[in-house]
């Protein structure tokens, strides 16, 4: 009786493990299927698509680097389709779009408030979190405000300011 009950327990553990594994596989498959559907949707809107399980664009760049140019796909795609509006691909299961059409680029760059720097740059945060490159919204505004308020009372900023008289003006125009 005892050995029979042990067997039952063992069987149900392995069943649970199998179920979990199955669930995980289905979930991963579903995520990639959903990703594929999203990318197909982008294709209909004029995008060129790169879908490579599991890593996506990182994998493509790895292959391209081996072939001599890490940006090979980025360059070749526009030779085939010079009117491409954007490129749609992924990093893991997260979709990523690379805008190409200058009007899309303009719309994207004109309103940085909607786009904090991506979470994939987390490893850089201990070094650059509050700097102009990676900070977002308030910290960035504060930095710019601090620079600009000081710039207004200073004649020189970089040595460049003595070369390019419009340089300070250019900085003051930012945001």
């Amino acid at each position: 009786m005892e050995s029979q009950s042990n067997l039952t327990v063992q069987a149900s553990w392995s069943q649970i493990l199998l179920m979990l594994l199955g669930f995980l596989i289905v979930r991963v498959c579903w995520k990639y299927a959903r990703l594929w559907l999203i990318l197909q949707g982008f294709k209909k809107q004029g995008a060129e698509v790169c879908f490579k399980i599991p890593q996506g664009i990182y994998y493509q760049r790895k292959i391209d680097t081996k072939n001599g140019d890490g940006f090979k796909w980025f360059k070749e795609i526009i030779q085939k389709n010079p009117k491409v509006r954007f490129l749609a691909t992924h990093i893991g299961t997260t979709p990523i779009i690379y805008l190409v059409d200058p009007s899309l680029v303009k719309a994207f760059l004109s309103d940085p408030s909607k786009y904090p720097k991506s979470a994939i740059y987390e490893p850089f945060m201990p070094l650059l979190r509050h700097g102009l490159l990676l900070s977002h919204k308030y910290p960035m505004e504060k930095t710019q405000k601090n620079f600009i308020s000081n710039l207004q009372t200073r004649v020189h900023y970089f040595t460049a300011s003595s070369y390019d008289q419009d340089y300070s003006a250019h900085l003051l125009q930012r945001d």
């Binding site: 999203i38 982008f42 809107q45 940006f71 980025f74 360059k75 795609i77 526009i78 491409v84 509006r85 954007f86 490129l87 990093i91 997260t94 979709p95 990523i96 779009i97 690379y98 805008l99 190409v100 200058p102 009007s103 899309l104 680029v105 719309a107 994207f108 760059l109 940085p112 408030s113 909607k114 786009y115 904090p116 720097k117 991506s118 979470a119 994939i120 740059y121 490159l133 990676l134």
Partner: peptide, 29 residues
């Protein structure tokens, strides 16, 4: 440097869902 969409929105007619990564390909142009 890639950016995350903080909210779902459109860039012209392109629907960008919250959490998607948005970037631009200068090299392609």
């Amino acid at each position: 440097v890639a950016r995350d969409a903080a909210e779902s929105h459109y860039i012209e007619d392109v629907y960008v869902k919250k959490g998607m990564i948005v970037n631009m390909a200068m090299i392609t142009n």
